[in-house]
Amino acid sequence: MNDQSNERLYYRASRPPWREILSHRWSAARDSSLVLRNADGDYFLLGAPGETEDTGAYVPLPDESAAPGIGGSYTDVFRVDVTEHVDIQAVGLPTVYGRESVELWVAWWVRDPVRVVRAQTLHGWHMVRAHLTSVLRHLTEAQESAGSGLGAPEIMQHLGVPQHLEETGLSYRVLDVRLRETGEELRLGQDEGDGVRYSWTTSRRGEYEFCLQALRAGPASLAALWLLRHPDQVRQVLDWAVDHERLLVPPRTDWQEELAALLGTLTDQERKEISYLLRDRLSALGRPVPGVPL
């Protein structure tokens, strides 16, 4: 990863133009390109980079400048860094569980050295980050308007291919989306409450159904889910299970116990009426009942 985001992308060479041209051709350098300017303001390019590896088919540069000649009359010579850089942008994505902090690993490079010099693009990552922020905000708004959310699959689908900053001569693409712990981040989408509807994405539905089943299954399922996410808290979960045994295993009763408890709440008159009914029922069954002749 590039930790020197403030380094200049190009600098003015101090040697005569013809020496810079010969030096560049002899060294066959691939980490830099040579941009020359003559008195008329025309630019010439030596060592133009193409697209980086694994980014798809080659796309022609917006400005194809002529190659410089040793005998040309040049007033300025610039060496432009064309190596690939990798930086990280922290982002807070809205999900059904609240904000999810992720890191976007972004590769960026000089696609058009002449444009870099013309636009005086000295520090590339600042330009890339500003463009990336704008694209992410527009992508979030588009996803919300469609009634869905923005997650890692959507980001990789839209930004996993090269994005070209034609005015500054730079290109970039998102390499990966990874979970992160803490730190400053770009917050996208709506906050709690409003964010739940917008975070309903296909990639989250399985997790949502799993949590819904866990809630329906009751306290035992929730305790097991907690232990799965926090395996170091076995003792705390066991203590909670012992203290809340009635929640995990509700006391069982049968109809006889419930009926006996109900009879204890009856008045004397109600007991007499039930006794008469019970006596007549037993007598009809041919059972001996006190006070009734056989």
Rank of each mutant, 00 (worst) to 15 (best):
Leu188Arg: 01
Gly71Trp: 12
Gln120Cys: 08
Ala28Lys: 11
Leu150Pro: 08
His230Lys: 03
Ser275Glu: 07
Asp112Cys: 14
Gly264Asp: 14
Arg216Trp: 03
Tyr58Cys: 05
Trp240Gln: 00
Asp87His: 14
Gln190Glu: 14
Gly50Ile: 08
Gly47Lys: 03
Glu184Lys: 09
Ser73Leu: 12
Ser171Phe: 02
Arg118Gln: 05
Pro219Asn: 02
Asp76His: 10
Leu215Trp: 11
Gly92Ser: 14
Val196His: 10
Leu228His: 10
Lys272Ala: 09
Ala152Asp: 09
Arg216Asn: 06
Asp76Ala: 10
Leu34Lys: 12
Gly92Cys: 13
Leu93His: 08
Asp194Cys: 01
Gly151Ile: 04
Ser5Ile: 09
Ser27His: 11
Gly149Val: 07
Arg252Leu: 09
Glu144Ala: 10
Gly41Val: 00
Arg204Gln: 13
Pro219Asp: 00
Pro49Asn: 05
Glu103Arg: 11
Cys211Met: 12
Arg287His: 13
Glu51Val: 02
Ser65His: 06
Met1Gly: 13
Gln120Asn: 14
Gly160Ala: 07
Gly92Asp: 14
Pro251Glu: 15
Glu7Ala: 12
Leu228Asn: 02
Glu64Asn: 07
Ala39Ile: 14
Trp26Ser: 08
Pro162Ala: 13
Leu150Ala: 10
Gly160Met: 02
Ser33Gly: 12
Leu277Ile: 11
Glu181Trp: 01
Pro62His: 01
Val177Leu: 12
Glu273Phe: 13
Glu270Ala: 13
Val174Asp: 05
Arg19Asn: 03
Arg180Cys: 03
Leu132Thr: 07
Gly218His: 09
Gln256Cys: 09
Ile155Phe: 09
Gly189Asp: 05
Leu186Asn: 01
Arg15Trp: 10
Glu184Phe: 07
His24Gly: 02
Leu22Met: 09
Trp255Asn: 09
Glu257Gly: 01
Ala39Gly: 07
Ala67Val: 15
Asp239Ser: 06
Arg137Gln: 08
Leu247Glu: 06
Gly147Trp: 03
Pro113His: 02
Val77Asn: 02
Gln236Glu: 15
Pro231Tyr: 02
Asp76Phe: 03
Glu270Gln: 15
Gln157Ala: 14
Glu185Trp: 10
Ile88Ser: 03
Arg178Asp: 03
Leu179Pro: 07
Thr202Glu: 15
Ala260Ile: 11
His131Ser: 14
Thr182Ser: 13
Arg173Thr: 01
Val96Leu: 15
Glu167Val: 03
Thr121Cys: 08
Val96Ile: 14
Val116Ile: 02
Tyr43Arg: 04
Val249Tyr: 14
His158Tyr: 06
Val35Trp: 06
Ala28Cys: 05
Gln213Met: 12
Leu61Met: 06
Gly149Trp: 12
Leu215Ser: 09
Gln233Asn: 11
Val116Cys: 01
Ser65Glu: 10
Asp194Asn: 12
Arg118His: 00
Arg99His: 01
Asp176Met: 05
Leu212Pro: 00
Thr202Lys: 14
Tyr208Leu: 13
Asn2Val: 05
Ala217Cys: 02
